[in-house]
Computed example of a mutant assay.
Amino acid sequence: MANVVERPWGWFETLGAGDGYLVKRICIRAGERISLQRHRHRLEHWVVVSGCGQLHCDGEDLEARAGTTLLVPCGAIHRASAGAEDLVIVEVQRGAELREDDIERLEDDYQRISVQAAAVVS
């Protein structure tokens, strides 16, 4: 099941899935970050397994290093950023709908802003 999906900021792979959960390993390349985003149908639990950087969730910032954990509630605005080295996170998603299109991008370094977010910003 573990096929790597490349993104402009790094990559992710799905490690496993079951009824109401999905597990991914995410690698954010040094100096890169994922979009500032939220999800309508899932919560996420992040565990940093290696690297360094910063985690952001609903206005709070947390230093990311091996062992750091963060619960991202459904609807929370969040982002992960890598520091001087790649940041590797194991992400457990929980929810009734676990799809890649449940990402509302509010800000993005790669111009992938969601239509809903663009309407809010305009």
Rank of each mutant, 00 (worst) to 15 (best):
G10D: 00
E97K: 12
S35P: 10
L15H: 10
C52A: 04
P73A: 11
R94Q: 14
G53P: 01
A17S: 15
A82D: 06
Q37T: 09
E91S: 02
T14M: 15
G10N: 02
R65L: 11
R79Y: 11
A80L: 15
Q37Y: 00
H39N: 01
A66L: 06
D61R: 05
S81A: 15
S35K: 01
A96F: 12
G95L: 07
R25A: 05
R65T: 06
R79E: 07
G95K: 08
G59M: 10
L55N: 03
S50G: 07
T14D: 13
A76R: 10
Q37K: 11
L36P: 13
W11A: 05
E91D: 00
D19A: 15
L87N: 09
L62F: 00
D61P: 00
I89Y: 08
G18W: 12
G95V: 13
D61W: 12
K24I: 00
E100W: 10
C52Y: 10
G53T: 07
I77W: 12
R94N: 13
E97D: 09
R65C: 13
V48A: 09
S50W: 04
R40S: 03
I77V: 14
S50F: 08
V49L: 10
H78E: 05
H78T: 02
A30C: 08
G83W: 03
L62S: 04
G20T: 10
G67R: 12
K24G: 01
L87S: 02
V72H: 11
